[in-house]
Simulated assay, not measured.
Amino acid sequence: MTGIATPTLEAGRLVDEARLAAGAEPGEPLRFLDGLGVLTTALEEEARLSERGRAGTRAALLGALVTQLRVARAVKGRPPVARPRAVFITGLLRTGTTFLHNLLAQHPDLRAPRLWELMSVADPRPPRERIRGCAAYVEEYYRAAPDFRAIHPLDPQLPEECHRLTANSFRHFIYGLRYNVPSYMDWLDQQPMAAAYHFHQLQLDCLLSADPEPAAAVVLKCPSHLWHLDDLDRVYPGATVIRLHRDPKVAIGSVCSLTAAVRSARSDDVSPSEIGAHWLDRAARALEATHPGGAPIDVRYADLVADPLRVVAGVCERIGVPVTVAARDRMTRYLAAGADKPATTHRYRLGDFGIDGDRLDRRLAAYRAAFDV
Rank of each mutant, 00 (worst) to 15 (best):
residue 111 R to V: 02
residue 176 G to I: 12
residue 17 E to S: 13
residue 296 P to T: 14
residue 86 A to C: 02
residue 231 D to S: 11
residue 139 E to H: 12
residue 66 V to Y: 00
residue 218 V to N: 01
residue 50 S to G: 10
residue 49 L to C: 04
residue 26 P to C: 08
residue 15 V to P: 10
residue 278 H to C: 06
residue 152 H to P: 04
residue 320 G to Q: 06
residue 158 L to A: 12
residue 196 A to N: 05
residue 139 E to W: 10
residue 122 A to N: 05
residue 217 A to K: 01
residue 283 A to R: 04
residue 301 Y to P: 07
residue 304 L to D: 05
residue 28 E to A: 14
residue 146 P to W: 15
residue 132 R to G: 08
residue 273 S to P: 02
residue 231 D to G: 07
residue 82 A to L: 06
residue 197 Y to P: 09
residue 85 R to N: 03
residue 105 A to D: 13
residue 173 F to Y: 11
residue 206 C to G: 04
residue 4 I to A: 13
residue 126 P to S: 13
residue 84 P to M: 00
residue 116 W to F: 09
residue 224 S to W: 10
residue 35 G to E: 14
residue 74 A to E: 03
residue 299 V to R: 05
residue 6 T to R: 14
residue 372 D to L: 13
residue 108 P to E: 12
residue 259 T to M: 06
residue 81 V to Y: 01
residue 236 Y to L: 03
residue 290 T to K: 06
residue 307 D to P: 08
residue 230 D to T: 11
residue 177 L to S: 08
residue 97 T to I: 13
residue 144 A to P: 10
residue 155 D to W: 06
residue 124 P to G: 04
residue 292 P to W: 05
residue 120 S to T: 11
residue 196 A to M: 09
residue 308 P to N: 05
residue 90 T to K: 02
residue 279 W to Y: 14
residue 140 E to G: 15
residue 17 E to N: 05
residue 242 I to C: 01
residue 275 I to W: 14
residue 222 C to Y: 02
residue 57 T to D: 11
residue 320 G to D: 04
residue 247 D to S: 03
residue 340 D to N: 12
residue 177 L to V: 14
residue 28 E to Y: 00
residue 66 V to P: 01
residue 173 F to W: 12
residue 300 R to M: 12
residue 271 S to Y: 12
residue 56 G to L: 11
residue 121 V to G: 01
residue 131 I to S: 03
residue 213 E to T: 00
residue 187 W to M: 09
residue 159 P to S: 05
residue 70 R to W: 01
residue 188 L to K: 08
residue 114 R to K: 06
residue 238 G to W: 07
residue 161 E to A: 01
residue 244 L to N: 02
residue 301 Y to A: 07
residue 27 G to C: 08
residue 119 M to A: 03
residue 57 T to H: 04
residue 100 L to N: 09
residue 251 A to T: 09
residue 299 V to D: 06
residue 72 A to T: 05
residue 308 P to T: 00
residue 366 A to F: 04
residue 86 A to D: 01
residue 202 L to P: 01
residue 95 T to F: 03
residue 167 A to F: 06
residue 335 L to M: 13
residue 3 G to P: 06
residue 358 D to N: 13
